[in-house]
């Protein structure tokens, strides 16, 4: 049967892939490998979303991130032609970075074990219908604000990239 044990195991498997891919993306010194690992990371996270009963969000993750942001990053890589054959320089703050990262990670994991969380509620089957209603009712402000942010983003990015005044 598809009980919660299977669910947890699959979630952990995706999580493991995500962690490894994220490590690879951060640690590799070749930019292209970093981007490829980032793509794998995003896909694993999409799998986790799907398991957490957020199928819509999972596919949006693939659509926007893998089909959009990764393409955008690749475009930027090609237009700036950096780090293509030769490895990238790494900053001298690696020790400090590692200490801070260990501290943050340790604290967050400790916090995760420290909480007494309620059991997950019953998830509605048709997530999309509920999401649509949420966007039109309680979260209307978020919906319209995203519109404004998108508008601002396209104007700002065009101004920056074209190097001209508004």
């Amino acid at each position: 049967m598809l009980d919660s044990d299977v669910q947890i195991a699959l979630f952990a498997a995706f999580g493991g892939i995500a962690v490894i891919a994220a490590l690879a993306a951060v640690l590799t010194r070749y930019l292209l490998r970093s981007i490829v690992a980032f793509g794998a990371f995003l896909t694993a996270i999409a799998g986790q979303f799907y398991i957490l009963a957020a199928d819509f969000v999972a596919l949006i993750q693939i659509f926007v991130y893998v089909g959009g942001v990764v393409v955008l990053i690749l475009f930027a890589l090609m237009l700036s032609a950096v780090g293509q054959k030769h490895p990238l320089a790494v900053s001298e703050h690696r020790g400090l970075g590692a200490v801070v990262a260990y501290a943050v990670g340790g604290w967050l994991v400790w916090a995760a074990f420290g909480q007494d969380l309620p059991k997950a509620g019953q998830v509605p089957g048709e997530t999309v219908a509920f999401l649509g209603r949420a966007f039109l009712d309680q979260q209307l402000v978020a919906f319209e604000v995203i519109g404004i942010i998108l508008l601002a983003a396209v104007v700002a990015a065009l101004v920056i990239v074209r190097g001209e005044r508004l």
Binding site: D55, F56, L59, I60, I62, F63, G67, T127, V128
Partner: peptide, 10 residues
Amino acid sequence: LNVGILYFLA
């Protein structure tokens, strides 16, 4: 899938 059409595009 519940989100089949989106899957087809994504």
